[in-house]
């Protein structure tokens, strides 16, 4: 399964098998952009990079972008990713090892789909989360090429680490390549402001300790024993008001499937030897 050029006939077969649409007339490559968000040069560059990694490592790295995944499948982005992977027979080796980033632009859904024994070993749940974080900041700025580069590069790192028996199960950022998220000046300013309020309050408390002479305005200590006598204790009902407020029962929010589709992303196990991490970008 080395060749990824897909014929129009195969696309038609996919159309029939999916029943709801077709990955129409697509020539599925390592990087496929049906939504037209990349320039052809960029796509070629990324495609070449993904191909190189896939062939060198024996673990496929794919990017598939469509305008609306519902044009192709009855389901969400995870179903789309699974169906494309299965129908096109993607992946390398006997268990079809590989990882795919599938994106549907209309709903801004993404899914990272890992397949095969080695694919799932290399792309752990934690690894997929970290992989998503590496490109989501680019996507939020509509920097598609940058996001795909991050996906491809970090996928290569994860595959190579897994090859060395050290799959990414906890994130160790490279301080040079990835200094990690840094606080903005506004966030630092806010921290300093809140801290100054705390500091000022504590120093104010210390200052109050320095002045303990205060005039008394109460005399509880001098109330005679049994010295409180109530002569009138009268509670009179005056009126009653009744208000009625309709309870709104909002439909559950979120994506198109239970437990998924929220902004931060979620990981679920698929039914085709793969695992997902999906969300909104």
């Amino acid at each position: 399964m080395k060749k990824l050029w897909i014929s129009l006939l195969l696309a038609l077969a996919l159309l029939l098998s999916l029943g709801a649409g077709a990955f129409a007339e697509a020539r599925l490559e390592y990087v496929t952009d049906e939504a037209g968000i990349l320039s052809e040069d960029t796509r070629r560059e990324l495609n070449e990079r993904a191909r190189q990694i896939s062939e060198d490592t024996g673990c496929g790295v794919y990017v598939v972008v469509v305008k609306d995944c519902r044009d192709y499948v009855n389901g969400g982005i995870e179903t789309f990713a699974e169906e494309v992977f299965e129908e096109y027979g993607l992946g390398y080796g006997s268990t079809h090892d590989g990882v795919m980033l599938a994106m549907s632009m209309s709903e801004r859904d993404y899914d990272i789909y890992a397949h095969g024994d080695f694919g799932n070993y290399a792309f752990t749940d934690y690894g997929k989360e970290q992989l998503a974080e590496s490109f989501l900041d680019n996507f939020r700025r509509n920097d598609w090429a940058g996001g795909f580069r991050d996906f491809v590069d970090n996928s290569e790192d994860m595959i190579r680490r897994a090859k060395n028996g050290d799959p990414v199960d906890q994130w160790i950022p490279d301080p040079v390549q990835d200094p990690g998220p840094s606080l903005s000046a506004g966030e630092l300013g806010l921290s300093a402001l809140i801290a100054a309020v705390f500091g000022g309050t504590m120093v104010g408390g210390m200052k109050r300790q320095m002045k303990t002479a205060v005039r008394q305005t109460r005399a509880e200590n001098y109330v005679a024993q049994g010295g409180v006598k109530l002569s009138r204790q009268d509670d009179q009902f005056v009126n009653r008001t009744v208000s009625r407020q309709v309870i709104r029962r909002d439909p559950p929010s979120g994506g198109s499937r239970p437990g998924g589709g929220h902004y931060g992303g979620t990981t679920i196990s698929g039914s085709h030897g793969g695992s997902h991490h999906s969300g909104k970008f």
Binding site: A219, G227, T241
Partner: peptide
């Protein structure tokens, strides 16, 4: 309390009267 698809809130208003005498000894 809920009634059907609405929350019904009942507020009763009271006029409260209190009279009393407090005795003090040796306020310094």
């Amino acid at each position: 309390m809920p009634q059907g698809n609405a929350m019904v809130t009942t507020t009763d208003f009271f006029r409260i009267l209190r009279s009393g005498t407090v005795s003090f000894e040796k306020i310094p």
